[in-house]
């Protein structure tokens, strides 16, 4: 079975009498280790889908299985725990904690577990090496470039070894060179480390870095072109 298996997924928000349905009856399979790009116009439901896959939001109906587990059934509390161990989230604007160094930012997801300081240090060091920022470990976000901040954010997303990475326009705020290095890093995480990656992007060049690109429009996948 696919790593991510989505069947008839619908998500609607109701506010008072009006209700929006950003995702309707959507089905999708993503095998393990695939780097998938999601494209589509603004408001087409990309972030909504990503948040469902990441367990930040819960579907209105349908099935959402990740690694054999139907996360649509999990309670808020269970979802939080599930995210802490299985998902790494990469934001467009990095969202590092400004008063913490790169090292401490990467440490955040590890504070939830029962690791010793030495064990944490080893994992953080490995993540820093992977994103090639060992020499910036003790810099604060304000002392890093946008590309470096995003690499720290990626290190923070992978430090606890999740199988799934989701990224919402991770290169949206970066220049071409920085964007390319981030994309190379994501490719490497998928092919060499077997991470399944779902990335939302507006940038066709970014989408080209992925194994496959899907287009969303008004909450539906409109085609399924193999790249």
């Amino acid at each position: 079975m696919a790593f991510i298996s989505i069947r008839s997924l619908t998500k609607s928000y109701t506010k008072g009498k009006t209700s929006v349905t950003p995702l309707e009856n959507l089905s999708l399979d993503v095998p393990q280790g695939e780097f998938l790009a999601l494209m589509g116009p603004s408001g087409s439901g990309k972030t909504t889908l990503l948040n469902l896959i990441a367990g930040i939001d819960t579907p209105s109906s349908g099935q959402l299985e990740i690694n054999g587990r139907n996360i649509a059934d999990l309670s808020q509390r269970q979802l939080t725990q599930w995210r802490a161990t299985h998902v790494g989230y990469i934001f467009q604007l990095y969202h590092l904690v400004p008063v913490l160094s790169a090292y401490e930012n990467i440490e955040l997801p590890l504070l939830l577990g029962k690791l010793t300081k030495a064990e944490r240090r080893m994992k953080i060091q490995a993540a820093l090496d992977l994103v090639d920022l060992s020499d910036r470990a003790h810099h604060r976000p304000a002392e890093l470039s946008g590309g470096q901040e995003q690499r720290v954010a990626i290190a923070r997303a992978i430090v606890h070894h999740p199988e799934l990475l989701v990224a919402d326009e991770p290169t949206g705020d970066l220049d071409r060179d920085s964007a390319d290095s981030i994309l190379t890093l994501l490719q490497q995480l998928a092919t060499e480390h077997g991470k399944t990656i779902v990335m939302v992007t507006h940038d066709p060049k970014a989408a080209q870095a992925a194994h496959r690109t899907l287009h969303l429009e008004k909450g539906q996948l409109i085609n399924n072109p193999r790249q």
Binding site: R77, A84, T85, H95, L112
Partner: peptide, 13 residues
């Protein structure tokens, strides 16, 4: 916003 980010990372309420 930052609280939401921490929750996304898996910080419980």
């Amino acid at each position: 916003k930052e609280t939401a980010i921490l929750q996304t990372l898996g910080f419980s309420r």
